[in-house]
């Protein structure tokens, strides 16, 4: 009984448990991140309001200052501002998450065009091209394209993804370069593995493992950008904290809470995501170091 050879499924289960234990910090932090995102979306459904309903002010405004019932007060049409800010942040999160995922994917594809080239200066063209685009501020590029297209959601997401791709590609290229300098890679060369096998089987996997951390750290920044774009009136027909603040900006004497509270909501949510994103990113990197050692 004591010397029984373990079955394949038993071995697989043990390995899976060991892997989960190794990833415990990453999983814990990632689940907190997802819980926060889940909380945002739990209030986003069935709000049943069009932006035009929110921004209309009747002759006798129905707004109320913040109280126990309405924490953030109400709008000119009597809508709860906390609920609207909640919906707004969920919208910003969804736009940011899609753009970040697309941007990371595009950056990986772009780097993959150069990575199999054996030359020493293989990333030179990529780095120069990305640096040249950086002469114009990314926000200016985004404003021109989003403003020109009337703030279409798909345009905002695609432009954000392209900007993320252009800024991330040199970083990913650097990771590939660093990855190829490791002792394990040198050992693989000594064992006779081809460059293609090493890059695909070893270096790429190391780089890809960093992407969840990058995604988690990117989303809060993109949420801020999306909020800023909506504030400028280039976020299209969506309720976001940016558009709520822009709406409140015109009423700061009569109803200052309308500009103030959506901003507090945005700050708190972005701060929470930034902190968790940074921790997830760090944990993912630390896990890599442990694996390497």
């Amino acid at each position: 009984m004591g010397n029984r050879r373990k079955s394949k499924s038993e071995l697989w289960a043990n390995q899976a448990l060991a892997k989960l234990w190794q990833l415990r910090f990453v999983l814990f932090l990632a689940s907190l991140y997802l819980l926060l995102a889940g909380w945002l979306f739990s209030g986003a459904h069935n709000v049943g309001v069009r932006p035009s309903d929110v921004y209309t002010v009747s002759e006798i405004p129905a707004w109320k200052a913040p109280d126990a019932e309405h924490w953030f007060g109400t709008t000119g049409t009597g809508l709860d501002l906390f609920r609207l800010s909640w919906v707004g942040m969920a919208t910003s999160f969804s736009v940011a998450a899609v753009a970040a995922a697309l941007g990371i994917g595009l950056a990986h594809l772009l780097v993959a065009l150069f990575v199999f080239d054996p030359g020493e200066k293989r990333f030179r063209l990529l780095n120069s091209a990305c640096r040249s685009v950086g002469i114009l501020p990314a926000m200016a590029v985004l404003i021109v394209l989003a403003g020109g297209s009337g703030g279409k959601q798909e345009v905002v997401i695609i432009v954000l993804a392209f900007l993320v791709c252009l800024h991330l590609a040199p970083v990913i290229a650097n990771w590939f370069r660093e990855g190829e300098e490791g002792f394990d890679v040198l050992a693989a060369y000594a064992l006779g593995l081809s460059r293609l096998e090493i890059v695909r089987g070893r270096v790429s996997r190391k780089v890809i493992r960093r992407y969840p951390g990058i995604f988690a750290a990117l989303v809060p920044s993109l949420m801020l950008v999306e909020t800023a774009l909506s504030f400028l009136g280039m976020g299209g027909d969506r309720i976001t904290c940016g558009s709520l603040i822009a709406y409140g900006q015109g009423l700061i004497i009569e109803a200052p809470w309308m500009a103030l509270y959506p901003g507090i909501m945005a700050s708190v949510v972005v701060l929470a995501f930034s902190l968790l994103g940074w921790l997830v990113n760090r944990a993912v990197r630390a896990e890599q170091i442990v694996r390497f050692l």
């Binding site: 801020l224 504030f231 940016g242 409140g248 901003g263 945005a266 930034s274």
Partner: peptide
């Protein structure tokens, strides 16, 4: 500074204006 960076910059400017008014 990183914590301050989480605050939407445009909202900060409006909050200063509101504070200034009131």
């Amino acid at each position: 500074f990183s914590a301050f960076a989480a605050v939407p910059p445009f909202w900060f400017a409006i909050a200063v204006a509101i504070f200034s008014y009131f």
